[in-house]
Simulated assay, not measured.
Amino acid sequence: MKALLVIDVQNAIVEFRDFHRELNRIESIIKDFKENEEPVIFIRNLDDEETSPFNKELPSSELHCSLKEYADIVIEKKTPSAFFQTELSDKLEQLGVEHLFITGFNTEFCCQFTAIAAYDRGYKVTFIEDATGTVNDEATYEMKGLDVRDFVGTALHWSNVIEVLDQEEYVEEYKVSKVSKV
């Protein structure tokens, strides 16, 4: 069984800049999974620091309203990996998941760490590069011309163990409606 992880689509990140395209891509993939009755699992980053935008008590830590309605399952985490000291592994085992699709924020942290951790736990992993986003850019890393998503996608692709697709490739490869399954 396949499952979709929607990582850290929270107000503190989504409201940082215009992520309209990324949110539309994520929503399209969510709808595909929902249509095929496959699990969609939201991951929510939380922090105990009072001043952190991810403090559980603050509205900035909430799932963003654009996708919140799709969140049937929410796993809370405190590190970049959605697997570290969370209920994610148990939930995936209960659901019989063997293949994880990764979307969300921030590409080079939580999405990448979770993809690698999933592979390390024996899952087939598909990283949908253009359905991830980041608040960081070339200035953050002092690397002129850096495209963070492309860099992470390329590194994961070169691993030869994590499949990296853009949304269009995902649709070509995996989108199969219930009607065509019959």
Rank of each mutant, 00 (worst) to 15 (best):
G96I: 10
V97P: 01
E98Q: 15
L100G: 00
L100H: 00
F101A: 01
G104L: 08
G104F: 01
G104I: 08
G104E: 02
N106I: 15
T107F: 03
C110D: 02
C110N: 07
C110S: 12
C110M: 05
C111T: 02
C111H: 02
C111Y: 00
C111L: 08
Q112W: 09
F113P: 01
F113H: 13
T114W: 01
A115I: 09
A115K: 08
A115M: 12
I116D: 03
I116A: 08
A117F: 04
A117V: 11
A118G: 13
Y119P: 03
Y119S: 11
D120M: 14
D120N: 13
D120C: 12
R121Y: 06
R121N: 09
G122Y: 05
G122V: 12
G122E: 10
G122P: 04
G122R: 07
V125I: 09
T126D: 03
T126G: 03
F127C: 04
F127W: 07
F127Q: 05
F127H: 08
I128E: 00
I128S: 00
E129I: 15
E129F: 01
E129Q: 13
E129D: 10
D130H: 09
D130Y: 06
A131E: 03
A131W: 01
A131V: 11
T132D: 04
T132G: 06
T132R: 01
G133P: 01
G133D: 09
G133R: 02
T134W: 00
T134Y: 00
V135Q: 14
V135L: 12
N136P: 06
N136G: 05
N136I: 02
E138F: 08
T140C: 05
T140Y: 09
T140F: 04
Y141N: 02
E142P: 04
M143W: 05
K144Q: 11
K144N: 10
G145T: 07
G145V: 07
L146W: 04
V148A: 06
R149Y: 06
R149F: 11
D150G: 12
D150S: 13
D150Q: 15
F151T: 11
T154V: 11
T154S: 14
T154L: 12
L156H: 03
L156M: 07
H157D: 12
H157E: 14
S159V: 06
V161E: 13
